[in-house]
Design a protein around this nucleic acid. Structure first.
Length: 313
RNA sequence: GGACGGGUGGGUGAGUGGCUAAAACCAGCAGACUGUAAAUCUGCCGCUCCUUGCGGGCUACGGAGGUUCGAAUCCUCCCCCGUCCA
């Protein structure tokens, strides 16, 4: 009775084996991979963002990777637009989209949609930051309180990033954030969505994170960073702020011993994995699997779910 | 063998008689998050009990004693660690 095309989401923290599981699924059910990751959209930053090398893709096309130059800014809204386009493309070719998702916000932007809110304005932001420098760190929050008390109440005074975004919405839309968001969003429709979540034991996950960092270095991560620096990519470029890239750049520039850089990368990655889990735990209707995505047991569990006919929700 | 310096909660490390379950930072755990999200921010963080309260009890600053109404803080002895002298 259900004739909707399927969409499979594989979500989980870094190093949990999303790519391996996603590829295996795509292979068996005639799918292609849609990467839902805020870092892999940047070109040339390959090893440290854990892009699946062409040789390991097993012939499965990977989309939504290498979309922009390092000096560009890519946002959740951009992701949504690109992803919708990719979905349309797969649909026209009868391929099942398999999303491997590490960036919760991007996944939500695609599945739930985004409100009709103004796009980020660099000019406005620069003005705000300038005034914040003059009047102190909590000035912007006081400003927001005057413009939109409800929004100010929801955002912590020190959360400058979210405070700025709220002011931006209020000023550019000339409506309160509540009104803008309350107007609703357009969720993705027309798919039977199956979400598989990977949640291996915490200790094992952390151990694997450490091991993966080591293998990234063994694969030439440091050399990649050196090439990116030599290519003249400025250090303010967004991908140079990603975990690992900033530390390794500091090391190559002589301000940080390699051992220290590695320790920092491990720590930052662990913390990141934890935040990912916090986000994904709230994701509705996820079928959680307790192993790594490349474990045979996990694969079996995943396929049991995929082939179960009573699984529309 | 002698002279100093030091041993504090998972780690680093403040504290030199009561305001100290003990600063701060880190780690860890939990949470928030609709266009920077690998971002940004918040809470908890000795154990335990309940009538969950700026509540009660217990344990804690190397060990054992002691001084004191009261000690991580003072005294004695002992054990470790570091530096220097022999």
């Amino acid at each position: 009775m259900n004739t909707l095309p399927r969409l499979i989401v594989v979500l989980g923290p870094t190093a949990s084996g999303k790519s391996a599981l996603g590829i295996e699924i795509a292979r068996r059910i005639g799918g292609e991979i849609l990467v839902c990751d805020s870092t892999q959209v940047y070109r040339y930053f390959d090893i440290g963002t854990a892009k699946v090398p062409a040789g390991a893709q097993k012939g499965i096309p990977h989309h939504l990777v290498n979309l922009v130059e390092p000096t560009e800014l890519f946002t959740a809204g951009d992701f949504r637009r690109c992803a919708l386009e990719a979905l349309g493309d797969l649909r026209s070719r009868g391929k099942v989209p398999v999303l491997t998702a590490g960036t919760g916000l991007y996944l939500r932007a695609l599945l739930e949609g985004l409100s009709e809110a103004p796009v980020r304005s660099e000019e406005l932001r620069e003005r705000l930051r300038c005034r914040a420098r003059l009047h102190g760190p909590e000035y912007l929050h006081r400003l927001l309180a005057r413009l939109d008390a409800a929004a100010a109440h929801r955002i912590a005074p020190r959360d400058a990033q979210k405070v700025i975004r709220a002011i931006e919405i209020r000023v550019l839309a000339k409506k309160s954030v509540g009104e803008v968001h309350g107007a609703g969003r357009l969720p993705l429709e027309g798919y039977e969505i199956l979400k598989l979540g990977l949640n291996p034991p915490r200790e094992a996950l952390y151990a694997r994170i450490h091991a993966r960092i080591d293998s990234m270095l063994a694969e030439g991560w440091l050399e990649e960073v050196r090439r990116l620096i030599d290519a003249g990519i400025p250090h303010e470029a967004k991908p140079f702020q990603f975990i690992g890239y900033s530390e390794l750049r500091a090391h190559l520039q002589g301000t940080m011993p390699l051992a220290e850089a590695i320790q920092k990368i491990r720590l930052a990655t662990r913390n990141f994995a934890k935040r990912q889990l916090t986000w994904f735990r709230r994701e509705p209707r996820v079928h959680w699997l307790s192993g790594f995505g490349d474990a045979p047991v996990t694969l079996d569990q995943a396929f049991a779910l995929i082939s179960s006919p009573l699984l529309s929700d």
